[in-house]
């Protein structure tokens, strides 16, 4: 028994060892009487049983991941080059680049790309800055700060469907928002018909989306802020550094990793815009709020053209890859 556990420990550690020194530094032969138990011995039987059980424990997760992530990802590639329909008695046929040619000529699709770009360009800086501000405001040891954290976080636990309905109501011409605008400007400013005007529909969706998700990123900024050592701030305080300098030279550099993460997650979240649109505007007015995912659902589900929707999904996926690798490149560690 004792010999087994010695070998177990050695080989348990082995897979982690190469990561430390990089690929070049392979670990030397492992200590112990026998590094790899041969079959036929008792140790070999134990190891084989362990391997089998290990695979059995991995299998359910692996099977489900293959079935519901790997296969659909491959299908997005495959189906985009066919004429597959959601429900059809005929098997899909290969049609080459037809779907992509159609996509290139589809004005609504280009419109959806432009809308998503608009949404992302405004939401990414706005939401990350607001969330950082909120994180700084609640990262203070004062009484009642926990209350504010809780309140800021409430919209995050509220579903996007609920938030969309609530704001749909508030955005009406005679709705709450316009009444508030009228009240604070003493009746001087008449609010627009937010969601029915192509000029204000997207800004309205943006405002609401930022309201819903800012609390989420506040928490991520907060966990980043808490990794910055407190003695840096103490030293700065002794030097009489101003609040801005403190932020500029301690907080901001200390948040590098968090910043990259937040940029990538908000961007991908912005590109995936769907629920708000489906509940509030259905892409209108005049396609001013239609998005990539909304287009994919319209064609792939409502018009049952799986192949065309797969082509849209593929373009979307490539876009996600480009954005995340571009951001990784731009914000890479400079050594």
């Amino acid at each position: 028994m004792t010999t087994h556990s010695v070998t177990d420990r050695a080989s348990d550690r082995a897979p982690h060892a190469p990561r430390v020194g990089g690929r070049a530094a392979r670990p030397g032969p492992l200590p112990g009487p026998r590094t790899r138990p041969r079959s036929g011995t008792m140790a070999g039987a134990v190891a084989r049983r362990e391997e089998r059980l290990g695979w059995a424990m991995i299998a359910p997760a692996a099977l489900l991941l293959v079935l519901f992530i790997v296969v659909p990802a491959l299908l997005a590639f495959g189906l985009a080059f066919t004429n597959a329909r959601l429900i059809s008695p005929y098997p899909p046929e290969f049609v080459g680049l037809d779907n992509f040619v159609r996509l290139a000529e589809d004005a609504t699709f280009w419109r959806s790309l432009a809308n998503v770009a608009y949404f992302a360009v405004v939401v990414v800086p706005l939401q990350s800055a607001l969330a950082l501000g909120m994180a700084l405001l609640v990262n203070v040891r004062v009484r009642g700060v926990n209350f504010f954290r809780t309140v800021y976080f409430l919209p995050v636990v509220t579903s996007m469907v609920v938030v969309s309905l609530l704001w749909l109501f508030m955005y009406r011409q005679e709705g709450l928002l316009n009444e508030v605008i009228r009240a604070v400007t003493f009746g001087l400013v008449e609010g627009p018909d937010w969601l029915n005007d192509p000029a204000t529909a997207m800004p309205a969706v943006i405002l609401m989306s930022v309201w819903q998700a800012a609390g989420f990123h506040m928490i991520i900024w907060l966990s980043g802020l808490q990794t910055i050592p407190g003695d840096l701030y103490e030293a700065a305080a002794l030097d009489g550094v101003s609040t801005w300098q403190r932020f500029r030279h301690i907080t901001w550099p200390g948040l590098r990793a968090t910043r990259n993460l937040i940029l990538v997650t908000i961007t991908i979240q912005a590109l995936s815009l769907f629920t708000q649109i489906d509940v509030m505007t259905q892409g209108g007015p005049l396609d001013s709020t239609t998005t990539i995912v909304h287009q994919a659902v319209q064609t792939g589900f409502r018009q049952q053209e799986t192949s065309y929707a797969s082509a849209i999904s593929l373009v979307f996926f490539v876009l996600v890859l480009i954005v995340s690798s571009a951001q990784r490149y731009l914000t890479r560690e400079k050594s």
Binding site: F68, I69, V71, P72, A73, L75, A76, L79, A84, L86, S272, F274, V293, A296, V297, G300, F301, T306, A309, S310, I312, S313, F316, F317, V320
Partner: peptide, 10 residues
């Protein structure tokens, strides 16, 4: 969201 549509078919 990128997988949802092919996944419906699947």
């Amino acid at each position: 969201e990128t997988l949802a549509l092919p996944l419906v078919w699947w």
